[in-house]
Amino acid sequence: MPYPEPIQEFIENLSFLEDRADRVQALIELSKSYQPAQHEKPYPAENRVPGCESEVYTWVSLNDGALDIQIVVDNPQGLSAMALAALLSEALQGKSPKTAATLDGELVFALFGRELSMGKSLGLTNLVQQVKAQSLKLA
């Protein structure tokens, strides 16, 4: 089953880029669209994405039956986490909670490739899984 439209579209566009450097550049541009959520520090431990070295926190709630996705990447060097956060927010914000049902860990490899470190892939995958779990809990 395909991912939500903005994610599917981004992955398809990436697939046209054969040069790794061009793919990296596309992901850097995506990371620039990341909008940090406005939450006061210290962030609650229960919102922290486990295993993510970049210290990422997620909040998912319902607003008139539509998802409100908020993500903080508490690391200015966490560009990959920012890129993924931007894409997840774009895909899910204002949508039905069930929209998150097709998200899975493979999304991380589809975006960043297979050459990620184990720690990096674990953290990014957990970000996807956490947003998915928080969304589906509201379905």
């Binding site: 990296v24 070295e53 060097q77 966490g78 560009l79 890129a83 490739g113 470190s117 990096k120």
Partner: peptide, 22 residues
Amino acid sequence: NEDPLLYASGHIPGAFEVDWTL
């Protein structure tokens, strides 16, 4: 780096990237 996007986003002038997997 661990993060594969960092080097391309800006690096010390003249520095080369050495990627642990590649």
